[in-house]
Every structure is written in C-alpha cells, then in structure tokens.
Design a protein around this nucleic acid. Sequence first.
DNA 1: TTGTAAAGTTAAGCATACTTAAACTTGAAT
DNA 2: ATTCAAGTTTAAGTATGCTTAACTTTACAA
Lengths: 221, 221
Amino acid sequence: MPSISKENYIKAVYSLCQNDAHSVSTSALATKLNITNAATSDMAKGLSKQGFIKYEKYKGVSLTPKGEKTAIEIIRKHRLWELFLMKSLELGWEEVHSEAEHLEHQTTEFLMNKIDDFLGNPKFDPHGEPIPQKDGTIPNMEAQISLNKSQVGKEYLVKRVNDESKEVMDYFTEIGLNLNSKIKIKNFLKYDNSTIIELNDNVHSFSEKIGKRIFISQLNE
Amino acid sequence: MPSISKENYIKAVYSLCQNDAHSVSTSALATKLNITNAATSDMAKGLSKQGFIKYEKYKGVSLTPKGEKTAIEIIRKHRLWELFLMKSLELGWEEVHSEAEHLEHQTTEFLMNKIDDFLGNPKFDPHGEPIPQKDGTIPNMEAQISLNKSQVGKEYLVKRVNDESKEVMDYFTEIGLNLNSKIKIKNFLKYDNSTIIELNDNVHSFSEKIGKRIFISQLNE
DNA sequence: TTGTAAAGTTAAGCATACTTAAACTTGAAT
DNA sequence: ATTCAAGTTTAAGTATGCTTAACTTTACAA
Ligand SMILES: [Mn+2]
Ligand SMILES: [Mn+2]
Ligand SMILES: [Mn+2]
Ligand SMILES: [Mn+2]
C-alpha cells in the first residue's frame, strides 16, 4: 500500500528495467518521473527500507520480488482501465492512457476484478501491451520488432505502440495507423534514421524516436 | 485544483452546512473527516486564503461561491461514478459509495462528461441523491421526510437513503429495503425512539440514528 | 458578574515528497 | 597514476497534512 508517488516510482523502475539491464540509474528515474536526481536518490532509501527495491549507492536500483509484484499489480490496473474506458465509454485509444495514469492508483482489487470479468479477462490492452492476469502472470506477446529494425521492402502488421505521448497517438489516429494496420517498409533515411513506410496507399515517415515505439510483426505471405 | 485532503474538506463543509445553519464548527468537521480539531483549524486557514471558505476564528466555517462550486463538482463526480459502477459493472448499491469516494478525486471533467452522457444525463444517484448537472444546477427532489418524522399507520415510499455506512446498506439489502420500497409505519418506541415498520409483509425496527438517514414520501392512495 | 468547562486555536513536532546547492564517487582520458 | 567531468549523493530547506500538548475564547450556570 505505497503512496501514489511510490507507486509511480516502482512502476518506473519496472519499465526502465525492461529495456536495459536489470537495474536503472537514479538519474534515468529522475528523467522519467520528472523530479530531481536528489529526490530520486532520497526516495530510493525509503523504498529500499520498505523492501520494494534493491539499492546500492552509485549502483542503481532494481525491484525485489515484492516490488515486482507491486509493479505488476499497478500495470494490471492501468491496462484494464484503458480497455474498460474504450469498451464501455468508447473513448479513443489516444485518450485512455492519461486517465488510466490516475485511476490506477485509486482502484481496489475488488473493483479491478469486476472490470476484468466484465471485459472477459482480456490478455492485451488497446495499445497491444499484455495485461497482467489476476494470478500475476503476464501473457506472452508474439515475436515483435521495433519499426527501426525492420527490413526495406517487407510487409508487417502493427502489433504494439507506446502510448505515452498523446500528441503522437493523435497523429497515429489522424493517419489511420491502428493495431493490425498493414504497413510496407519503403526506405530508411541515413540522414536522420527515419523510416519511410506505406500505409493505406499513403506514404509516411517516422523519426527514429517514434520508430522505436512502434512494434511490428512480419506478415506471413 | 485542490489536493485530495482539501477536496474532502470542502465536501464535508458542504454536506454539514446542508443540515444545520449556514456554517459548521471546526470540531464537527474534525469528527466527519476523522482528523483532530487542530488539523481542521489549520486547514481552514489555508482554504480561506485560497478563497474556498469563509473562516472567522471561533465562528465556524462556510463555503464561498467558489468553494460551493468546487463542492458541487466533486459531488457530481461521486454520484455519477456510483451510478456508472452500478449500470456498467452491476455492482450493488451498497458497494459503490466507497469506490466513488476515491475515484471522485481522480476524474477529469472530460471523463466525467463521457460518463454523464453514457448514463443519459441522469438526475439521481442509486441512493436517491440528486446528481449536480454539467451546468452546476441540482435537480429538485420531491418532498421527503425522514423516517423519524413519519406518522403511525400511514404508508410511504422509500425515496432516499444515506449510503455512508456499508454495514447499514448491507442490512437494507438483506431485508429487501430498496429505493421505492413501500413501507407502513407500525409504531414508535418511546424507550429509544426507534421506528417499527412493515416491509414486504415483514416487520422491522430501525434505531433513531438509522431512521434519520432514511427519507420517504407519503404514498398517495 | 464571575468561574469554569467545553470548544476552539496556536505552538511545536513529525513524515512525506519535493527543491537547490554543495560534496562526493566513478571511470575514462591523459 | 592523475585529473576532471559526469553522475550521484548528501545536506539543508520548503510545503503539506497531520499529531499532541498547551493555551485562549466562549458560553452559560451559579
Ligand atoms: Mn498506458
Ligand atoms: Mn500513475
Ligand atoms: Mn455516496
Ligand atoms: Mn473522497
């Protein structure tokens, strides 16, 4: 039962440990959480004392099993809320993330399980992210690569997108890029590592930064 | 955009001013909010400086127009959440209050209006309380009296109940007392001011304290 | 009118979650 | 090995939202 700040901290440790190694620097956390380095170090002590994280000075932070369980519970709430808001209120996939970011901290297990059952115990959220199940297990995603790692000339299906920027999600919606959209890789620009694709007979380009946040799987002919 | 503590304070001022006069004592607030007198006085200074309440030492607290607007917005969120959870997830009327108590502080105007529209802009919540509308107006309730003020021998319809105690709401559910249940007043016990009623061919009694929290209207024959 | 109990406020202190500024590690280049 | 910049931590301070303990005001009964 950590505070909202602590829940967000734990969630940040979890997601930053996904990509990189098995630990995060305090400064990476500071950037993600939009607080100072000093605050991040400070917080690390508290969470460490409470057994949520492992923290050695100058060595970064990682989650204990207790911390990981907590992170997964919060992420479950986040993703179920997103799906629920879309299914029950017809919000757009670009609108649900910011609402879920708040609701995730104010939802009882009881309510969450009601929502889970209402949705039929779904495995994926509206952005293609797996929804941690009641028992804590996380559904497997089929093999995916980021747009940057794709091959020119091949066709792919969009399987997952990072939803953190509403601005970017709005743009996806505007150009008609959705989950399971079919895209064809036209080219990579050496100049800035952007990717040129074809989508619904239109040509679009994505910066390297955005390309890293679109995940695709190869279309089997 | 007050904090959660401040929102709860403002809401408490609003609801305690409804019954009594046009101001509340700091100690009444302390009881309601389950914090000390000292904290309540302290908080009053802050909210007063921010223009939500009028506060004169030793004279109690009342809402300014700005404070009242804020209170009504929170109450709107609370009651819409309650209805929404019942309608969309089939929670019981005894289960929704405590969930709404938290969700009310984490809901954007945007989401609230979506929920309001989904529900068809309802006028009353599951316990018979009026739901403040988008424009801030509060629907009128038809004339009601509390169970204590009823007349022996007459028949009434249950029109509104106070939902603050889950324990009591569970009991209502158990005996089949709902909104629009028909009851007949059998007797008042002088001994403890409890009320004896007939409901669905069964006889029940309610303490004075509970009787004050059940609101009824006379059944016109 | 005054004494006193109850009601209410102020003072001092604590925990949380932050800030800025200063001090310290670390590691990689010389 | 030495240096030094980047990364990280500590120290000191602030605002919020509480607590307990001491003090002040009020009301009203004698
Ligand atoms: Mn999300
Ligand atoms: Mn969050
Ligand atoms: Mn309620
Ligand atoms: Mn509340």
